[in-house]
Design a protein around this nucleic acid. Sequence first.
DNA 1: TTTCGAACAGTTTTT
DNA 2: CTGTTCGAAA
Length: 736
Amino acid sequence: MLVLAGAGSGKTRVLTARIARLMEDGLPPYRILAVTFTNKAADVMRHRIAGLVGHEPDGLWAGTFHSVCARILRIEADRTDRTRGFTIYDESDSQRAVKRAMEDVDVDPRRWSAKGVRARISDAKNAMVRPEEFAAAAFDPLSRVTGTVYPAYERLLARCNAYDFDDLLLRAVRLLEEDDEVREHYGGRFAHVLVDEYQDTNHAQYRLVRAWASVHGNVCVVGDDDQSIYGWRGADLRNILDFERDFPGTAVVRLEQNYRSTGAILNVANAVIARNRARKEKRLRTERSHGARVVVAALRDERAEASWTVRQVESHRDRYTLGEVGVLYRTNAQSRAYEDALRGVGMPYRVVGGIRFYERREVKDVLAYLQLLVNPADDTAFFRAIGWPRRGVGAVTLERLETARSRSDGSLLDVAAAARQVEGLPAGAARALALFAKDIGALADLVPVASSAEVAEECVRTFGLRSALEAEEDGEDRLANVDELIAGMVAFAADRRGVEEESAGSELGLFLQHVSLLSDIDQYDPEEGAVSLMTLHNAKGMEFPVVFIGGAEEGLLPLGRSAETIEELEEERRLFYVGLTRAMDHLHVTHVSRRFRAGTSMPCFPSSFLDDLPDEAIDRRMSGSPGWRSGGSRFTAHGTSHESRSAWAGSSDRDRSFDWRYDPAATRDDGPVYDYSDSQETFELACGTRIVHPRFGPGTVLSIMGDGRTAKASIEFDLEGPKTLLVAHAGLRPAG
DNA sequence: TTTCGAACAGTTTTT
DNA sequence: CTGTTCGAAA
């Protein structure tokens, strides 16, 4: 069954109800496999099924493609060349490994970036191209280089007993396709396979679905070609477009009724997505009323954008909680301005994405030690752990260690244990290496008999990690993160109590594999009373009563580097569409005329996507920073509807004072509708006035110099001390 | 030979 | 903000 389900039409509900129905008809849950896009979605689904059938769906396989594959590879470890304690390398681990592989085959890492080579290898793996096939088809220089690095990288991963993200899919497919017993086992076991967000599957994932369904053929996928936003990760829209051909006898169901958004929001979203050529024609409809028009606001810069957004959130607060507000943007870097503004007024918020918890330096450092206990072959973890805290082992020693290893064929840890026998190592370094290996060995003995948290505590103690962190600059925060990591282990163990794990790895090993596959969105708690900040990608599958989309500018949304071809531009448009359709009641889209990017302030122009918004459904606002004088009179806007975009091409910093009156609708015939209802309230700035600054927080005005746009104010901030600011740019608000 | 500070690079989206 | 690189000091 193929369910073509538009945004907000109840995709997930369909899957959940189908699983519940299967269970009610007597199918045991362990015979059902549900693949979701995030681990969180799997949890939510489990919970909802429990609500429908009255009990937990024990034994149901639900998770992401990656976590399901990791589980299969763990259970079937004996049939692979890795043990069940394998490490899962994230992108940075993988990049380090690629770099070492490049050194192994004498490719100059200055001339070729490990990052670029890794990306090529990743593409190849997702397309299921083997190293030898890749090398045979490589013609351009980067591909040739990649062709030589790829096999070396594969050898390195095997030696480290590690998989990268792509391997999890790839190796699971190989296992299923090439081992008849395995395929028949899983094919026979899974009477029903259900897949969410099918439009974002890549070739390897498609092959997985085919293999899982090889016995019963009961596949149910839901997806929406208009929400395909992972093309850059190898997602192939053909998977959904060719579904009927790949699975003969498919029933196709179309869901075009949207239960989420108001009429106005849906009008806008429909108009935007209609511009795409490569799509299945459909038109979402809603029975909800037209509702408030979609607000499109032009602001001066990202700070004005952020403070405008915060003020809008304030104005919604009587009817919505902060948890019902979502602020979405294209790039993680954009969160900064919003965070500053939110912190400035003390409004709770949470950022999803960016640097993930498990990617923090100190967390990765501790994880490297733990990884080594479970998987002593993991050289990447060895390098990381041996390098911190400093123990008198440097680059030269490590190089010699590697040379020594290439003559034996154990792991670096094995060689380190016998460091005293290695020629040419300084006595101090050899002693440190041997001690390190001995301590790791002793802790590893603890793994089978102690809980993972106990092992971690012991590890932190043995290697003096706590004191090493305490000695660091912001050691307190880092220490807190390590404590949180250990707390996470306790919670993980408690969660699993009573769950029978067929793959029976160590608790620590399972934890490590589990966190390697966690995304930030998995930790997201919608109940929290805080504004949510996240990228448009992370927002997929979510909904918010009140939504803000920032940075609707040409070059940012669509993002310049991503929109070089028509296909890429259409993917950017789908991304915008995904953002628009997250909104239930109120939707706001903002764009600015100047933005700090890549270190400099750059002039910005409204996104071409905005041209497609139907006038009757939107409410244009220009709420630049009118600024104020010490006397209190307000600036008046002079929107010039004849200024064209090209006139702005040559704008320099000197034009800045005019930015606020830049007319975003200048090229439109009907001209803009000015609305200053949301502009900053005018208020008297006088000595002693209590104010709040978006960045520096509350403060008291000491003195005012000059007036008009050049007026400056000296302000004593409660936290940051005295500062002199340009009033027109400061974005001050009255306190309280 | 190691360690450390300074300077510098890179920053699209993610499992 | 992190990781890398380079030179200098230990």
